[in-house]
Write a protein that binds this DNA or RNA. Structure first.
Lengths: 246, 246
DNA sequence: GCGGTTCATTGATTTAAGTCAAATACCTTA
DNA sequence: TAAGGTATTTGACTTAAATCAATGAACCGC
């Protein structure tokens, strides 16, 4: 499996950016804030660009992790799979976000799977050179620590939701999150399919669909395909706080 | 709330170890592997030892985090609370383990609560001096990255369990974990109450009790209070893999 | 514009697990 | 050792959500 993955890196190698363009791009990524330009140049040289079509795998649970990744274009879903085939999405990463760092620092195999939700380009950073860089650059170390810490915080919330809240609460929280992300707009658009949203919320499409329908009927929201109008923000907030009532 | 916490640090200040003893102790903690001795001495000087009785709080969700902690003696439970009062334990930390690092690197408030499961002593490390130390010591940075990465991996498993596995699977996994921790012994002893175990597995005591009873009746395990004899390891492994059948 | 695939919705049913309530065992300490 | 609290177990019941099944809608490539 490990060999397969490595081969696939080279099979799909493509120099998306001219070296300097890539350096320019990397310099704007929070993770590399504060890195001296010459090190960015070095870094850019040892990366490999991978192209993935919708549905293609980046890595699978159990694969050996020889480095980590950064999304250049598209979106990458990181998820766990049950024997029965149910998926739990852990995170959906977009442009500029690093993922797959865990095996770089602890253990060596990936704890989850990653695949492209759409045609995507990702950058691969080999482990050894990253470690060397971190040893020389405290700011890089701190940036990486910040990223892992932020992710721990998010997982904390996900665990809380799965264990302590019902699906309507989780959906309400997600809608409020979307709304906040758009500066508080009351009209939001789902940028993932409802099936993917179900997986992100730890449920299945049927259940999600029913809950959308209930919220719609109760006048809390109004749905048109992926377009959702929030009619009562307070109702959503109350749902997040005290689950039931729906 | 923030002020209260800070005050309480000093209220319970106690110099458990003589400075050199403490340095000695710290030098054996994985987190500080590779730190030069003189920096351990500096570090030891700026720590504060806190005493907590069983049930006492170390920090609460939302508190401002001005540093992180290390368990010296006893055990610390880190958990989330639902409005209805149900608890989800995220982790139980024992001697030598650091906890509460998230706000040091990302955000500033704690994402969860921490309290002592028994009479405990914990060491507090102020944020600023830790950051300074990390900036000077790549090995400390990498150790810290390893710890956060390991914890991410664990959370990943917890999310998987909560979303994709039934309670019997989770219990089976926990029993196997205990067994492995004791070098594969088939007789294990719960070192937490069954109520705490329920919270760790994301369920409630009643449910856990019933499942214990079922496994007992089916001859998979044999229970005597906190002592559990594993009669069929394969049965447990199968439960982990494919939930049902119980 | 058509056929096919993927996505979404709805209904009927099952099921795991939570709730409420009460009895029992356990354990500490006065 | 007895009393009071905590932890555990068991029973009857409720419920949220999963499963199974089928239909309908949207979207894509040809």
């Amino acid at each position: 499996m490990g060999i397969l993955v490595v081969l696939s890196h080279f099979r799909s190698f493509s120099q998306l950016y001219q070296p300097m363009e890539l350096v320019e791009y990397l310099s704007k990524i929070p993770l590399f804030n504060g890195l001296p330009k010459e090190q960015l140049v070095d870094l850019a040289q040892i990366t490999v660009t991978l192209d993935r079509d919708k549905g293609q795998v980046i890595f699978s649970e159990g694969d050996e992790g020889t480095g980590f990744y950064l999304v250049l274009q598209g979106r990458i879903k990181v998820y766990k799979l049950s024997p029965g085939g149910k998926e739990q999405t852990l995170h959906i990463f977009g442009s500029g976000e690093p993922f797959g760092e865990v095996p770089v620092f602890a253990g060596k195999h990936f704890p989850a799977n990653a695949e492209a939700l759409e045609k995507s380009k990702v950058l691969f950073f080999p482990r050894a050179s990253l470690i060397k860089l971190i040893e020389k650059n405290p700011s890089l170390a701190l940036n990486m620590l910040a990223i892992l810490a932020r992710r721990l915080r998010e997982f904390t919330v996900q665990i809380e939701h799965l264990s302590l809240k019902e699906v309507p609460s989780r959906l309400a929280a997600y809608l409020l999150y979307l709304s906040d992300r758009e500066g508080g707009s009351l009209e939001v658009k789902l940028d993932i399919t409802k099936g993917q949203l179900a997986s992100l919320l730890g449920t299945i499409p049927e259940t999600l669909s029913r809950i959308f329908a209930r919220m719609n009927k109760q006048g809390i929201i109004e749905i048109n395909g992926p377009h959702i109008k929030i009619l009562s923000r307070p109702a959503l907030e109350e749902l997040v706080e005290f689950g039931s009532g729906l």
